[in-house]
C-alpha cells in the first residue's frame, strides 16, 4: 500500500509537469487548431534559460523561473509571428509541416549551440526528504506541485476573469465573429502563445530541478507525451489538460514500476490510440460534430 502511494506521489510530480506543457498545446489548439510541434522544444529552451540564469547569473530559483518564462514567452510569440501567422489561411497540413520544421530547427540549433551532452542542473536548493507514514516526499516534488498549482490558479484567473481571457475564449469559439465584435484576433493569438510558452518554460525549469539533468533533445518526448495528455483530457479544454497530464504521469510511473522502464515511452502512445478510438473528444471534452 505504501508502495502504491509512493508511486502515486512520484506520478503526480511527473504528471503536473506534463500538465503544464499540455496547457500550452491545448490553448493553442483551441484557438487556431494547430498542433504546435515546437512546444516541446520551447520547454527545452526554458530549461536551458533557467540553467544559465542560475549558473551564470547566480539567480535563485524564483527569479530564474520568471526569467525563463519571460524569454520563452517572447520566443513563442516570435515563432507565431514569423512562421505560423503567414500560414493562417493555408491548409492545416501546411501549418503542421511548418510546426514540425520549427521544432526541428530549434532542437538542432540547440544541439549545435549547446552540444548533445547532458548537463547537470545547478543545485538551487539542497534535497531534503520527508517521511510521512512510510511514504517519501522530497522538497523538489513539493516545489513542483506548488509551482504547478500556483501557475494554474493564475491561468484560471486570466482565462476566466480578465478581459484578454474573455477575448481568448471568444476567439476559440469563433474567430470571425470575435473579430466582428472588435476583438484584435492577432493580438489574442500572440498572447495565447506567450502564455502557453511561459508555462512550458516553467515546466522546463522544474524538470531540470527534479531530474537534475537537461539536454537539447529533452523536449521531443515530453512534448509528444504532453500533447497526448492534452488529447486525453479533451483538446481545447483547460482543466482537461491538467487532468490528462496527471493521468499520464501516474500511468507512466505505474508501468515503470510494474514492467521495465524501457516500455514507458510506448504507454503514452498506446493511451493516445485507445482514447482516439474510444472517446476522441477526450475525458472532459464535448463531442462536436464537424459541420459540412
Amino acid at each position: 500500500m505504501q508502495e502504491v502511494i509512493q508511486q502515486l506521489v512520484n506520478g503526480i510530480s511527473l504528471g503536473s509537469i506534463y500538465g503544464l506543457i499540455a496547457l500550452g498545446y491545448t490553448m493553442v489548439y483551441g484557438i487556431i487548431r494547430l498542433i504546435n510541434f515546437a512546444h516541446g522544444d520551447i520547454y527545452m529552451i526554458g530549461a536551458f534559460v533557467g540553467y544559465f540564469a542560475i549558473r551564470n547569473f547566480n539567480l535563485s530559483f524564483l527569479p530564474a523561473l520568471l526569467v525563463a518564462m519571460a524569454v520563452c514567452a517572447a520566443l513563442g510569440t516570435a515563432i507565431e509571428r514569423l512562421a505560423y501567422r503567414p500560414l493562417r489561411n493555408s491548409t492545416r497540413i501546411a501549418a503542421l509541416i511548418t510546426a514540425i520544421g520549427v521544432s526541428f530547427l530549434i532542437q538542432n540549433a540547440a544541439l549545435l549551440a549547446w552540444t548533445p551532452d547532458p548537463r547537470s542542473y545547478p543545485d538551487v536548493f539542497p534535497l531534503r526528504t520527508y517521511e510521512i507514514g512510510g511514504v517519501f516526499v522530497d522538497n523538489r516534488q513539493i516545489t513542483i506541485l506548488s509551482v504547478a498549482v500556483a501557475l494554474m490558479v493564475v491561468l484560471h484567473y486570466i482565462v476566466n476573469f480578465t478581459q484578454i481571457g474573455r477575448a481568448m475564449r471568444a476567439v476559440a469559439i469563433d474567430a470571425d465573429t470575435a473579430r466582428l465584435m472588435g476583438i484584435d484576433v492577432d493580438r489574442v493569438i500572440s498572447f495565447t502563445f506567450a502564455l502557453g510558452s511561459a508555462l512550458a518554460a516553467a515546466a522546463g525549469v522544474l524538470v531540470g530541478i527534479y531530474y537534475n539533468r537537461i539536454e537539447p533533445t529533452m523536449g521531443a518526448m515530453p512534448g509528444l507525451k504532453a500533447f497526448v495528455a492534452a488529447v486525453l483530457g479533451g483538446i481545447g479544454v483547460i482543466p482537461g489538460a491538467m487532468l490528462g497530464g496527471l493521468v499520464m504521469g501516474v500511468a507512466e510511473v505505474a508501468v515503470v514500476a510494474l514492467t521495465a522502464s524501457t516500455w514507458k515511452d510506448a504507454v503514452a502512445f498506446a493511451i493516445l490510440i485507445v482514447i482516439l478510438l474510444v472517446k476522441p473528444a477526450g475525458l472532459l471534452g464535448r463531442q462536436v460534430r464537424e459541420k459540412v
Binding site: 512562421a83 501549418a95 509541416i97 511548418t98 520544421g101 521544432s103 526541428f104 530547427l105 538542432n108 549545435l112
Partner: peptide, 12 residues
C-alpha cells in the same frame, strides 16, 4: 538545420 529551414521555407 537545413532540412528544417527547407520545410519552413517551402511552406511559406
Amino acid at each position: 538545420i537545413v532540412y528544417a529551414l527547407l520545410l519552413i521555407g517551402l511552406m511559406l
